[in-house]
Simulated scan of single mutants.
Amino acid sequence: MDDIEAFWQRAQQHADLAQVSSYTGVNPLAVLRPPAWGFGATPEQADELLGLVLAGDKTATASALWDYESEGEEVPSEGTLGIVVDGSGTPRALVVTTRVRVVPFDEVDAAHARAEGEGDLTLEYWRRVHEDFFTRHASHDRGFVRDMPVVLEELRVLHAE
């Protein structure tokens, strides 16, 4: 059994998955292992941002919608589970998405910037570092533009190790 599968089995026992809504029948969240992913684009970013999540300071994240499209991935929705890994790929947290919005980059609000828990918690800081991130680490070929669509995701930790 790999590390992620072992983490998932422990998380299932400790996380209150019954509190995560399901539409019909058996809650698939208790059966299907969610995807594992890390924050940022480098091991250092993954560790730093995960640390903020584990400390309770980071309850939101942002991604370029164009990256989801170019990678053929679905945009998260409310109730989506994820296993967050650190920079070495070790699973550390089970999170659930509690809210998703898609807005133009230049319409991201100060409340979201604060919820991301990074830097000085201001919208100006958020815009500066995210413009840099979206410019340097995009998986799409459209470049950065101020009105590009951004997926704003709010997260809640269900289990952490």
Rank of each mutant, 00 (worst) to 15 (best):
T42E: 10
Y23G: 12
D57E: 14
L50G: 01
G38T: 00
L32E: 14
E74F: 09
D57V: 00
E73F: 11
S77K: 12
G72W: 09
G25N: 10
V26C: 10
A30S: 12
F39E: 00
E44A: 15
P76I: 05
D47Q: 05
T61H: 06
D47E: 05
D67Q: 14
D47L: 03
D47K: 02
V53R: 03
S70C: 09
S63M: 09
G56C: 08
E48Y: 07
K58C: 02
P76H: 00
G72A: 14
W37G: 06
G51C: 05
L54S: 01
F39M: 03
S63C: 11
L49H: 13
V20Y: 05
F39Q: 04
Y68P: 10
S77N: 08
D67G: 12
S70L: 04
S77V: 14
A41P: 03
D67M: 09
A41G: 13
L50V: 01
T80R: 12
E78F: 00
L54D: 03
A62R: 06
T80V: 09
A64R: 15
V53S: 04
P34F: 01
L32A: 13
L32R: 14
V20N: 02
E78V: 09
A64E: 14
G25Q: 13
S70N: 13
E74N: 15
A62G: 15
L29S: 07
T59S: 14
E74Y: 09
P43C: 05
W66R: 08
S77A: 12
L29R: 04
A30W: 07
S77R: 15
L65W: 04
G51W: 00
L49Y: 15
E71H: 11
S70K: 10
P76D: 06
E44M: 12
L50E: 02
P28I: 01
Y68A: 12
E48N: 14
P43V: 05
P43R: 01
V20A: 07
L65I: 10
L54A: 07
L52Q: 03
L29K: 12
T80C: 07
E78N: 11
S63V: 02
K58M: 01
